[in-house]
């Protein structure tokens, strides 16, 4: 059975201060694709992967969804169950969630609609390669 939905962390709230790997501080709403790529390049442990949304299904509770991703070059299939408002960062697009209206309502974070085919920023350990 899938894991419980991930609870919503505080750092997606508009105005949250995020520290990049080089020490630079940015607000969560100002982050760009390059910020994630450059931070991962500096990191000795973490590697950015491209994770393509393959399916979006209803979750076990009404406000949850199960998202199936195809992760990295090996296209490993990984499912996560999250609340509909949980934002993912889509390459070249920015924050996106299954229910952007709700994300904006709860976090004041402007969001696009997450769709099948979107390529999200995700992390893996370098040693897993």
């Amino acid at each position: 059975s899938p894991p419980s939905p991930v609870a919503l962390p505080p750092f997606f709230m508009r105005g949250s201060i995020i520290q990049l790997a080089d020490g630079e501080l940015k607000r969560v709403e100002d982050l760009k694709t390059e910020d994630f790529i450059q931070s991962a390049e500096i990191s000795s442990e973490l590697k950015i992967d491209s994770s393509t949304v393959e399916r979006i299904d209803s979750g076990q509770s009404p406000n949850a969804v199960v998202i199936q991703f195809s992760v990295g070059e090996l296209k490993a299939q990984v499912c996560v169950e999250v609340l509909v408002e949980y934002p993912f960062f889509v390459f070249g697009q920015g924050w996106s969630s299954c229910c952007p209206d709700r994300t904006t309502q709860l976090f004041e974070l402007s969001c696009a609609k997450l769709c099948v085919g979107d390529v999200c920023v995700s992390l893996t350990l370098r040693s897993l390669r």
Partner: peptide
């Protein structure tokens, strides 16, 4: 004001051994 590390915003999607 709390400061959060960049990697906390990104899901960790690791292939599992059972795959």
């Amino acid at each position: 004001v709390p400061v959060f590390p960049w990697h906390s915003l990104v899901p960790f999607l690791a292939p599992t051994q059972s795959d």
